[in-house]
Design a protein around this nucleic acid. Structure first.
Lengths: 347, 347
DNA sequence: ACTTGCGATGCAATCGATTACATGCGGCCA
DNA sequence: TGGCCGCATGTAATCGATTGCATCGCAAGT
């Protein structure tokens, strides 16, 4: 029975069950509204004909596509793809398809996303990226939030959107305190990309912990990064050229930490003997890196799942009126890239 | 101008331009069939009303969704997500949306994929996974290929599908020869997951190279793996328990190699001093691992792009009748996880 | 006995775009 | 001048599902 022949429609089912299409439609979406007997005849007819819904027909009538759009800054990053995995699973469970839109760039990045809504291809947007221009985004969503939107992972400050994220400042502070507790006093930080909320939050947490411990942070010790390995590598070069080096570094994510360690190792520095490093995210490779990375684990699966649930709840009408803000807590994972500070033998 | 109010339809444009909807439709999809003057009036009307196509309407009429479905075995793996990235970019360029379906499992994995076609949500399928049951897949596609299908990366042997992949046997043989050239004679292999085509191909290339060099492979030296780090780690335990250890190992992918190295390091073995290891894929982390991994780089972007192009060509009618088979070549990347073999000081 | 109410079902409009067919018009040729 | 052709455009059917409104039959209430 090839699909090509002709997919059976609701008409075929109706004919087979000797009822009207209206009744078939009701039997399928509101079973309690048709009598027991007809319901069974229709159910048999569906079996017999091999009927499946034509989503285009329904979309047209209901102005609903049963599809969500996920906007990502970089799907190649396994941090995002793990979240996408969770989103997809949850969406499938609730009967939604997942469209992906990756690295939408150009003069107006929100534009490409918006087109999906203008053409009615998606019902809602799940944004894993806080770097979009708020102006453009509001223009996209329209004044009385025309586009149901949930921002996950990142956040758009002061914007009236539902948000699911983790407590970055707290986690960053905890990571920093871990280094302080090990006796480090000169601690550096490799930041996230400029303009990114996570950069702000992790930096803030770092600064707060240092401040609370009464430790100074030299401007040199803040290395610019962008969440990619290369930027960690670049930070290493900068670090090596430095006279007064920190004895520990908190990197804004694991990839940066890995690039950083890679750069140091090239010049013969060893972790944790010569320096302690903490990452963020707990990517799969963190456990198997050399040395295994001390890091902060974000509940990524949970995060993706909650984000998808939140969005779908909105779409189906059973959602809070005012923007929800869900904050998950991360967990410190201590491995071997951090060690107690011993002053160098000869100062 | 909020989207919520009411998206303008083709009727609005027609009214504004004082023509019929038929003419508007023609002006937009077959401009040459409309006179210059009307074309301009319509173009102005589109501008003025801010019209965008309602995809559901078109889909219903044309039985076409301008969407492709990508089926992946595991999107969390950055190998796949890089390819997905390329696919998405290419698809967007040609006006197609990308639906993802990850880790479709259950009794009939092809089923979940099939539902997208039965419900007319996707026009074609791009499969990054050769592990599907051919029976089920044929049932899905129907006898006269009802579902346009391109298999990328992997391959379904003896199946009449378009395929875009890399030359795995050759690359695996090359990787193995690299070890042989370094003087290794006892070489092991960590395989891919059972039932996977890539496992076969890479294993075959390995065996071939060994055979050509007149080298024996003990059964013990073939470690079962599944492309994940954990399986490499497990292989390390097995390796360490062994009396007659290989001096080099070719792992079926980078993740496995990393897990393997991680396991060895835990027991004090060092690479490349005590063992040489070659991976496969050249993930971003391969360059920054310790030691930087010798590996085989697959042209992943190219692969994704070609796969998407091939599929879309089929969908748009301008494609070869008989299954295309595109094979890209990989590139050996020599870094520091492999070294010349020196017999141990004391045998 | 007559009305009222309600549950089950059918009828037909509707969503937005496309397209087969019809129409009208101007020009060209015999 | 009459007939034919072809271009530009309009008319209306169509794709498949949903849903407001109408209808029908039966049972309960007065």
């Amino acid at each position: 029975m090839s699909i090509a022949k002709k997919t059976p429609t609701i008409q075929d089912v109706a004919r087979f069950a000797r009822v009207s299409t209206a009744t078939v439609s009701r039997a399928l979406s509101n079973p309690e509204r048709v009598s027991e007997g007809t319901r069974e005849r229709i159910s048999d007819a569906v079996q017999a004909t091999g009927y499946t819904l034509n989503q285009a027909g329904r979309s047209l009538r209901q102005r609903t596509s049963k599809t969500i759009l996920v906007g990502l800054p970089d799907i190649r990053n396994s941090f995002f793809s793990t979240i996408l995995d969770a989103i997809e699973r949850e969406a499938a469970l609730r009967g939604y398809g997942v469209l992906v839109c990756n690295r939408y760039s150009g003069p107006n990045p929100a534009r490409r996303l918006g087109e999906y809504f203008l053409s009615h291809r998606a019902d809602g947007l799940l944004l894993l990226d806080g770097s979009l221009d708020l102006e453009q985004l509001l223009e996209l969503t329209g004044e009385p939030s025309a586009v149901p939107l949930v921002v996950a992972c990142e956040e758009i400050p002061n914007a009236p959107f539902h948000t699911v994220k983790t407590d970055n400042p707290r986690a960053a502070a905890q990571a920093t305190r871990h280094l302080i507790d090990l006796g480090h006093t000169r601690i550096g930080h490799i930041t996230g990309p400029a303009g990114n909320v996570l950069r702000q939050e992790r930096l803030a947490g770092f600064m707060l912990a240092m401040d609370e411990a009464g430790l100074r942070v030299l401007p040199d010790w803040i290395f610019p990064g962008n969440f990619m390995m290369e930027s960690g590598y670049a930070a290493a070069l900068q670090y090596l050229a430095m006279a007064n080096r920190p004895s520990a570094v908190f990197a804004a994510n694991d990839e940066t930490a890995i690039g950083f360690l890679s750069g140091l190792r090239e010049q013969g520095l060893e972790c944790p003997r010569d320096i302690s490093v903490v990452g963020f995210d707990d990517l799969a490779v963190a456990l198997h890196y050399s040395p295994p990375l001390t890091t902060v684990r974000q509940p990524r699966e949970k995060l993706g799942q909650l984000a998808a649930q939140t969005l779908i709840n909105i779409l189906e009408g059973n959602a809070e009126a005012k923007p929800l803000r869900i904050v998950l807590t991360s967990e410190m994972i201590v491995r071997s890239s951090t060690a107690r500070y011993f002053p160098p033998p000869h100062s």
